[in-house]
């Protein structure tokens, strides 16, 4: 017993150090797990509030580019309405019931903290549970996809960026809906992301547009991602394609959060099949 007390007395700082290191390690490992990252994140009221103040302060710097993006999106949406109207006039019978069956709702939000330099990047939004934001919702802007909501407090939400090594998103080639792949990031360049496991027979050309595949309950079909910048013709096991993003991930402002209204129904169906 004497020996034990002597041991603790001699190594008390080292043991204290080890205990704190263990806590830090646990938090690090939990942070990499999508379903366990509860404790250390910036979506609490203190850090969220401070980031909100900082972003209010620095928002004026990017007002001009933000306005340009909004004007472009407005033009695109107006064109879309015109196009849809003309289709409706020509073929009245095509106006089916499914048009009115709303599947997704959109909420707008502002990014108040942006990261793109580490291998595991997270963003922070200024909306939370009070505005109906929950886990696993899609986050996009007018140029393309941004990420998936991960953890929300009452007022703020943390988003797992597509620039995160744990991010997996279903994607396909535009105008060719047969071939699907998985979108991952290798942690190197924040403008380039990789499409894995696309079938070998798929016709891939540099400059082809990649969009979301709609094979999950999170992202709707056909949201833009980027263009193919490099095709590997080797015989590697995973057919890897480099994609240049449409979005400049270092400069993000206002975004949309997409909620799938049928998500619970789809998931309950999937659960029944498992049992």
């Amino acid at each position: 017993m004497q020996q034990l007390f002597y041991f603790f007395q001699k190594f008390k700082y080292f043991l204290f150090f080890l205990m704190l290191q263990f806590i830090a390690m646990t938090l690090t490992f939990n942070n990499l797990n999508f379903h366990k990252s509860k404790f250390v994140n910036s979506a609490n009221s203190i850090t969220g509030g401070i980031y909100y103040k900082i972003s209010n302060f620095s928002e004026y710097m990017s007002l001009k580019s933000e306005n340009e993006i909004l004007a472009k999106e407005n033009t695109r949406l107006k064109n879309l309405i015109e196009k849809n109207n003309s289709v409706v006039l020509e073929k009245d019978s095509l106006f089916t019931k499914t048009t009115y069956q709303q599947k997704y709702t959109y909420t707008n939000a502002k990014i108040i903290k942006n990261d793109y330099t580490t291998a595991f990047n997270f963003l922070l939004l200024n909306k939370g549970k009070n505005q109906g934001i929950e886990k696993e919702m899609a986050v996009i802007n007018s140029k393309g996809i941004i990420g998936i909501t991960e953890n929300s407090s009452d007022k703020y939400t943390r988003v797992q960026s597509i620039l995160n090594k744990n991010s997996r998103i279903n994607a396909r080639i535009k105008n060719n809906t047969f071939y699907y792949g998985t979108l991952k990031w290798d942690g190197k360049d924040y403008n380039t992301i990789q499409l894995h496991d696309i079938p070998r027979q798929a016709p891939l050309k540099i400059g082809d547009t990649i969009e979301t595949g709609g094979k999950s309950t999170i992202f709707p079909e056909g949201i833009l991602i980027g263009t193919i910048s490099k095709v590997n013709h080797g015989n590697s096991a995973e057919n890897k394609v480099d994609i240049k993003l449409f979005n400049d991930m270092s400069n993000l402002g206002y975004v949309y959060i997409i909620k799938n209204l049928y998500k619970k129904e789809i998931q309950s169906l999937e659960n029944i099949e498992d049992e």
Binding site: F17, L20, Q21, I23, A24, M25, T26, L27, T28, F29, N30, N31, L32, S37, V40, N41, S42, N44, I46, T47, I50, Y51, D115, T118, F120, F122, L124, R158
Partner: peptide
């Protein structure tokens, strides 16, 4: 770490 969403990496390295 809380501010930069990085788990416990800053805590680990500064403690070392």
């Amino acid at each position: 770490d809380f501010f930069s969403d990085s788990g416990g990496i800053h805590a680990f390295s500064i403690l070392t």
